[in-house]
Design a protein around this nucleic acid. Structure first.
Lengths: 115, 115
DNA sequence: ACTACTACATAGTATCGCTGACTACCGCGA
DNA sequence: TCGCGGTAGTCAGCGATACTATGTAGTAGT
């Protein structure tokens, strides 16, 4: 993936996954598929699993093992109260950042960088 | 600063500074002040200087030493062609990411996470 | 038996921003 | 005269993150 996107995902990818879990509980493999549907095509499986381990250890999700029809049992993650709180903070932080950056972008467009 | 914001700035702070330099050339100390004006109050000076070293090493800026009336000489950075190219890519990446995340946010709001 | 898909896990790497300290120059007021 | 505050830049060490690459297994279809 591009260096730019890789760095920009830091901090946001966690929020993105929390947001996906907020829509409905899901397991790792499913989340990677969901990410592809949402347009994040280039995010590797390993990345998602590592992140799920982290958010589980932080206690942001509840986990349930569910036998799968195909392959090994699934670890289904669902957002708990702490996770929803964290997601809220993610949106707050994101909104702040997005607002500032949009503002910067407008500054450049109006003041005209390249004539 | 908050962990969340710290992580989210990764990758974007560089773009933000390139954007500021696109408005007009500036030196380090001035940039930290500009950041404060733009709403990024909590960004440490050391962070800005370190970032400037990086973008200089990547050849995204031209540097000119200008004597200051107060204190040591200033290093005035101005965006060069490579820097503008990088800034363009920043905007592209940012737009992509912002669009996906906004879309995710809308999904949650319309489908209703909490009844 | 072989292949493909599903499903999860982990070790190692690179990058990034933060903290905290330090050097150095200037002008002003006590 | 001395110290203080503002200006200006530098650096080492740290923690967190996402990526790459690889490995482990179970099931289904041929």
């Amino acid at each position: 993936m591009g260096r730019q996107m890789t760095e920009m995902l830091k901090g946001t990818l966690e929020g993105i996954i929390l947001a996906i879990l907020a829509l409905q509980p899901a397991y790792g493999y499913e989340i990677t598929a969901r990410l592809r549907d949402e347009g994040f095509a280039e995010i590797a499986e390993g990345t998602v699993y590592a992140l799920l381990v982290r958010i589980e250890q932080r206690g942001l999700v509840d986990v349930e093992r569910v036998p799968s029809e195909k392959g090994p049992p699934r670890k289904v993650y669902s957002l708990n109260a702490a996770g929803r709180e964290q997601l809220d903070e993610f949106w707050r932080t994101w909104s702040f950042l997005a607002a500032r950056i949009t503002q910067l972008h407008d500054h450049i467009e109006t003041r005209g960088e390249r004539p």
